[in-house]
Amino acid sequence: MLLDVIQCVESGRFVIIQDSVQCCGRQLLQSFMCAALKREEVVHVLAFDVAEEDLRVPSDSGCAQRLCFHDGYTDPLGWNDSPPLTVLQFSPGEIHALLSRSEHPKPVTLVIDSLSWVLRHHPPAVVCQCLQELRRGGAVRSIVALLHSDLHQQGIVGSLCHLATAIVTVAPALRGHHTVAKTTRRTRSGRVTQEEECFIIKEDLTVTVQKQTHHPGQRDTEQEEPQADPAAHLTFNLRLSEAEKEAKDKLSLPFVFSQEKKSALLQPRPGAGQIIYEPDANDDFDQEDPDDDLDV
Rank of each mutant, 00 (worst) to 15 (best):
L2D: 03
D4V: 01
V9K: 14
V15D: 02
I17M: 01
D19Y: 06
S20L: 01
G25I: 00
G25R: 06
L29I: 15
Q30L: 09
C34K: 14
A36S: 15
E40C: 07
E41V: 01
V42Y: 00
V42W: 02
V45P: 12
A47Y: 04
F48C: 15
V57Q: 11
V57K: 10
P58M: 10
S61L: 14
C63S: 13
C68W: 05
Y73S: 05
D75L: 01
D75R: 00
P76I: 03
P83S: 08
P83H: 06
Q89V: 05
Q89A: 11
S91R: 11
G93N: 11
G93C: 02
H96P: 00
L99A: 05
R101F: 01
P107E: 10
V111A: 03
S114D: 08
L115F: 12
H121I: 00
P123F: 08
Q132H: 14
R135F: 02
V140Q: 12
H148P: 06
S159E: 12
H162K: 12
A164D: 06
T169C: 03
V170G: 02
A173C: 14
H177Q: 12
H177L: 09
H178W: 04
T179F: 06
K182G: 08
T184V: 14
R185L: 05
R186H: 07
R188A: 14
V192Q: 13
T193Q: 14
E195V: 05
E195G: 10
E196A: 14
C198Q: 13
F199W: 04
L205K: 08
L205P: 03
L205V: 03
Q212W: 00
T213D: 12
E222W: 03
E222S: 09
E222V: 02
E225T: 15
D229N: 15
A231P: 00
T235I: 00
F236I: 06
L238N: 11
L240R: 07
L240E: 08
L240A: 04
D249I: 00
L251Q: 12
P254Y: 03
V256Y: 01
K262N: 02
S263R: 09
S263H: 08
L265I: 09
L266P: 00
Q267T: 13
Q274T: 14
E278A: 13
D284G: 03
E288P: 01
L294V: 08
